[in-house]
Amino acid sequence: MTNQKLALSQQNIQEWVSLYADDLFRWALHKTGVKETAEDLVQETFLVAFKSLDRFQGKSKPKTWLFSIINNKIIDYHRRNFKEASKNHHLNFERKGESDVLNQFFDNSDTWKSNEKPSNWNELEGHLLDDHEFNMVLDGCMKNLPGHWYSAIQLKYLDQKSGNEICQELGITSSNYWKMLQRAKLQLRDCIEKKWFKE
């Protein structure tokens, strides 16, 4: 890079830090739930942006470009976090002698426990998401999930890939994948019902 070019790009990046760093941080915080992780992701994003500035060429808005970088970083983070967090948990559910989340919801004959039966939710519509309190409840319930389930759920919706592709990425069997989603969904559903519909 020539000196002139370098000076120009540094000026750009400095400006972008003051303009977009907070937005990027809030976005990453919302998607990871961990302050330190969000801080790291924003720093890495600017580093990548700086290194590949010549590929930017002003074809898109700087903000759009920075967000596309951080979105990839967020997906990478969840893949890593899934692998890291699942080291401490066996993914082979239903092992004999191990406690299973499912026992919380089903009795000995594998039927819903009477107090856990899903009842009819009356109002579960789009406008709920405009409700700040509902979003807070949802965030809280998501964070109650074990770390690797949380990352798997985030990936499922962020990555927009098929179930089979996600299994490959995470290095798990399809049966481990749907059994994990089953448990995560049961727990989320229960949490939302208790904290939103019954309070």
Binding site: A21, F25, H30, K31, F46, L129, Y157, L158
Partner: peptide, 24 residues
């Protein structure tokens, strides 16, 4: 929708000045 939505504008979380300066 929740995962793709931006946080409500009211969110006051900001990146600390220290980290911004460190990036620069």
């Amino acid at each position: 929708k929740h995962i793709h939505s931006t946080k409500p504008e009211s969110s006051k979380d900001t990146l600390s000045t220290d980290i911004k300066n460190k990036i620069i």
